[in-house]
């Protein structure tokens, strides 16, 4: 008999050692997230998956499920706070959805839709960030980077390459690449890398593949991210693709 906890009143079974996020996902319950990806080690930085665990707030992706715990996620208060986090991500970067190849397939957008975000609300920072188009197949568009480190983890843990890293700190933190020139072309990054497909936004995106799906038929045009299957589809089938 497996152990259980409750998530918004629903009984969720879990295996020993599983996080709240893992157990919820297995049970088909969506908890908003951006830096989490089932393939990779939990990161816990975006904080969108913050849930109330017996009254204490914690990230669902890093907190382990425990027998009998009472977890709340889909509350108005939590979703309002999550909306503020998404708004923070929008104003700290330069997210111009109308001109972005990832639009319609972007998880940042999709989470915004899911949470009913109508405005980024906070004053925009309009930071000056570099765009790196040096690589023959891939574009590095730092204006859209939300520092989730999925590419860092994918390149290090799956591709065994360490193409990406985070440089600087605080609001000046930025995605850096493994080359003295700072150019993606001077790394061993390849379009076939796992790191090439995990970006939840349009920060790391394939060249020459933009706007291939008409508006209305893109991944999140008709269906909320909460309704879609949680595991990423393989290459070319959409979710990680531009």
């Amino acid at each position: 008999m497996s152990k259980t906890f409750t998530l918004d009143g629903k009984v969720i079974p879990f295996e020993e050692g599983e996080t709240i996020m893992e157990a919820a996902t297995a049970a088909g319950v969506y908890i908003p997230h951006l830096c989490h990806h089932p393939e990779f080690k939990p990161h816990g930085s975006c904080k969108l998956c913050t849930v109330s665990i017996g009254g204490r707030l914690g990230a669902a992706c890093t907190n382990r499920a425990e027998e009998g715990m009472k977890v709340e996620s889909e509350t108005e208060a939590l979703n309002a706070d999550r909306r503020s986090l998404v708004q923070m991500l929008f104003v700290e970067g330069n997210h111009v959805c109308p001109s972005c190849e990832k639009s319609g397939n972007c998880q940042l957008q999709a989470v915004g839709y899911h949470l009913g975000m109508l405005t980024p609300h906070f004053p925009h920072f309009y930071p000056a960030r570099d765009v790196d188009a040096s690589h023959p197949d891939m574009l590095l568009e730092r204006n859209r980077c939300i520092l989730c480190e999925l590419c860092v983890r994918a390149s290090r843990d799956v591709d065994g390459k360490n193409v990406f890293g985070i440089g600087g700190r605080g609001i000046r933190a930025r995605l850096i690449v493994n080359a003295a020139t700072g150019r993606l072309a001077d790394t061993d990054f390849s379009v076939t890398d796992r790191a090439a497909e995990v970006c939840p936004t349009g920060a790391i995106i394939r060249k020459r593949y933009g706007f291939t799906v008409p508006i209305g038929k893109r991944l999140y045009d008709r269906h909320s991210i909460a309704e879609l299957p949680p595991l990423p589809a393989k290459r070319g089938e959409g979710r990680g693709e531009g």
């Binding site: 930085s45 975006c46 700290e92 985070i166 605080g170």
Partner: peptide, 21 residues
């Protein structure tokens, strides 16, 4: 605090700068 935030998590990275501003 804005200067010393490590930048790892969204609320602190952005929130401390919003407060400062």
């Amino acid at each position: 605090f804005a200067h010393e935030s490590c930048g790892f998590c969204t609320p602190c990275r952005v929130g401390t700068t919003l407060l400062k501003n």
